[in-house]
Design a protein around this nucleic acid. Sequence first.
RNA 1: GGCCCCAUCGUCUAGCGGUCUAGGACACCGGCCUUUCACGCCGGUAACACGGGUUCGAGUCCCGUUGGGGUCACCA
Length: 528
Amino acid sequence: MTVRTRFAPSPTGYLHIGGVRTALFAWLFAKGQGGQFILRIDDTDAQRNVDEALAPILHGLKWVGLDWDEGPEIGGPYGPYFQSQRLEKYQAAVQKLLAAGAAYRDFATTEELQAEREESQKAGKPFVYSRKWRAETDADVKRLEAEGRAGVVRLLMPREGQFVLNDIIRGEVRIDWASEQDHVIQRADGTCLYHLATVVDDHDMQITHVVRAEEHLSNTARQVFMFERLGYEVPVFAHLPYVAEPGSKTKLSKRKLDKYLKNRDFAQLMEHGQSIARRLGMAVSAETFNPVIVDFYEQVGYLPHALLNYLLLLGWSLDDKTEDFSREDMLKHFSLERVNKAPASFDCEKLVAFETRAMQRLPIKQRVAKAVPFLQRAKLVSEPPPCDTAPYVTRILEAAGDRLKVAGDILDFDDFFVADDALQYDEAALDKRLRKPVEALPLLKKYREMLAAIEPFAADRLEAATHEFVEANGLKIGDIVHAVRVAITGKAVGFGLFETLAILGRERCLARIDRALNVAMQPSAGKA
RNA sequence: GGCCCCAUCGUCUAGCGGUCUAGGACACCGGCCUUUCACGCCGGUAACACGGGUUCGAGUCCCGUUGGGGUCACCA
């Protein structure tokens, strides 16, 4: 029997980072042993814009490369894969449970139930429904309906003994049946609830292993109860620890961004992403654009594999040293047995470290291919790009080396793409390097003349000439290099100056220096 | 609060009774390199929550305490 796992998100409008990890583990477990990974949409809670709320989830899964064998868009032999389209199946299961004496019709009102709950709470006892409005016969049903009551269907849960679960990750877990409620599985209007639906679907779709987050652990007893009373084979369960907040053990949630933003690393990750997004002209509201949502990483230009590699090690490890996993390595080595039991907190710094390493290893050609779309989105390069774009960006990225951590970082080098007379100067750098040192402007002028004559206008020649220039004028290299950098890039920081000069070319360098000389003679913008 | 789960450096983890004076990675702190930034290199700080057992021997097994977390819907 081949292994079949599933990921069953509800259409919330975004893909949570913890959800990706759950999907990853389920995907790896199945695909690693030649099985199937199924995507099913838990939309029993019929919402209006399912398509709209689902799109980002499908998109996110595709982006990280977690492809599904059956599910939305591709269908499959056990469809439909949307719970909202499977109601008859659930209703049939309800009938079966009713017939088997595993469920009953119940006519209690919300208020009556609430009263019972409060009573047990007052008594300090766990709530156990009295089953007072349970209809045992058709006559009961008639009588209760005549009272104007609406009937739901509840599970007739055992009230003695223990449920024993053998979880792949957590081992043996015991729960007293008495602590379980008579859960509602069908509403008065005939619609069905999640617990029933998930059991019916997992069976219909022949799921062999339910790999899901730990918050479902306490749901397992009632689900297994249904599997058994429905005469279904019970799948194997594996409950993953959840992904926790940075620096805490509380479950990571999209709703607590304000709190996470107080974490320095998280705030930094966010700010870095937002600065890129802003330059792309994107909306950067924390509500829709933040590191808890997977889309964030795609928009900013992270490599999907780096995210996956990081997430893989969040709660799982192969041994005491292996950190880098190719997709093949992951599939080959992953096992649920080695998943940790304790929650793991989301560590931004480490994610960035994986990303940095992955980007460094990416061949230059691919780095260029990742970067160019960002230049286009920022309107720094036209679309389609001029034919000299690729070689030009290649030179920049070669010079930038590992300074490009995510593809969007290419925007740090926007100065290579703007017109000479549109270059923005960092005022602080201008003050420090050109306006404040008394000798700066005359020196820069002199250096400009040297540049005008130098042949060839190439990095190594420029470097040698600059050293000669420094020596001839009794300077230190720092006396000229910083001034030139500010003059030609507008910035205080950047990669090697001589590469920068060479890439820009003589004409643009001279034009920029001339303009900088002019600008530097004006008073600081802030004071003007 | 009831029930359930969890517990090794700041973080992710290795460790499945002796090889642990606890290993790796990220972060951090020094130093080197250096035209800025980044990288790189060298070195360093840093953990078995606590208390009882079991055992010749416990980070590793058991119990308790403490702490953390999850869950208690006609949500999924």
